[in-house]
């Protein structure tokens, strides 16, 4: 399969690969064990808003444990595609799909799919930090409580582990009972990541997670993605191409609802096959 070949390429990529263009090449990445199989695969998958086809017949495999970036100009369907994966589009009544979108081989839009169970496995972090108006502890414990963890000690363990994974434990450990809305934007966003991690998902969908943050907070989120790489299948929608090239292993480029190109990040940014991709990443349009 094409994508497995890509994966091999990613893991075997030499750290000191030479840049052919003026691109930032991420530092050497740790090898990922046990990843590289197709975790999510789309087959001729389309999303419609009423008559409008927002995502057009996308066929792609998302590799497990790797970071996949989705780039493309505004309105190209990248967010719609991402939100289709954990069925957040269900909130929009006019939205419907055709084709197949498989998660671990099961159709996400199948008749018998439990979207609640699906969302437990496919967590999402949104564009704007959206902590609940509750305490930091309750924010993180919200998911585990939903799924039946009520033991105070166990909850505390989960909260600490999640906050540590999201690299925010040191900043909030002494004020877990304070309202989460009192945190800064960057902290709130990492809290949202921690909240998602607390339900132990397999996939992490990040929908422009840094667009509302300042550069410093953005750097922290990117570091966090690097930390999480290898433990979760991560998909990140971003407008920032430097960010895509810094954090991702493979990149999908969407244009007007069509998946134009899907390749390893290094390849897509250094040697794009499609002229539209090249125009976009060189900044001829955005």
């Amino acid at each position: 399969m094409l994508m497995t070949a890509d994966a091999r390429e990613i893991s075997q990529r030499a750290p000191a690969q030479k840049a052919t263009r003026d691109m930032y090449i991420p530092p050497a990445r740790k090898k990922i064990s046990g990843g590289g199989t197709a975790h999510i695969s789309a087959k001729e998958f389309s999303v419609y808003y009423d008559e409008f086809e927002a995502v057009k017949k996308v066929t792609a495999d998302i590799l497990s444990k790797y970071v996949t970036a989705i780039i493309g100009p505004s309105g190209c369907g990248k967010s719609t595609f991402l939100r289709a994966i954990n069925r957040m589009n269900d909130l929009i009544p006019s939205c419907h799909t055709t084709g197949a979108l498989l998660f671990d081989g099961n159709d996400i839009y199948g008749k018998f799919t439990d979207e609640v169970l699906l969302r437990k496995k496919v967590g999402m972090v949104f564009q704007k930090p959206n902590p609940f108006p509750k305490s930091i502890f309750d924010n993180i414990a919200y998911g585990p409580r939903l799924h039946g963890v009520n033991d105070k000690k166990k909850l505390m363990e989960i909260v600490e582990r999640s906050l540590r994974k999201a690299a925010i434990w040191d900043e909030v450990c002494d004020r877990l009972d304070k309202n989460a809305l009192g945190l800064s934007g960057g902290q709130q966003q990492r809290l949202c990541v921690a909240r998602t991690l607390a339900v132990e998902p397999e996939v992490l969908l990040l929908d422009e997670p840094t667009s509302a943050l300042d550069p410093k907070a953005t750097a922290k989120i990117e570091d966090l993605i690097q930390e999480l790489r290898g433990s979760y299948t991560i998909m990140i929608v971003t407008h920032n191409m430097q960010q895509a090239s810094r954090v991702s292993d493979s990149t999908m480029f969407f244009y007007e609802g069509v998946l134009v190109e899907h390749a390893s990040t290094a390849q897509l940014f250094t040697n794009p096959k499609d002229p539209i991709t090249e125009d976009y990443i060189t900044g001829r349009f955005s």
Partner: peptide, 10 residues
Amino acid sequence: YREASLSLGS
């Protein structure tokens, strides 16, 4: 809020 809650499998 709704999105956040639903995305956590609520």
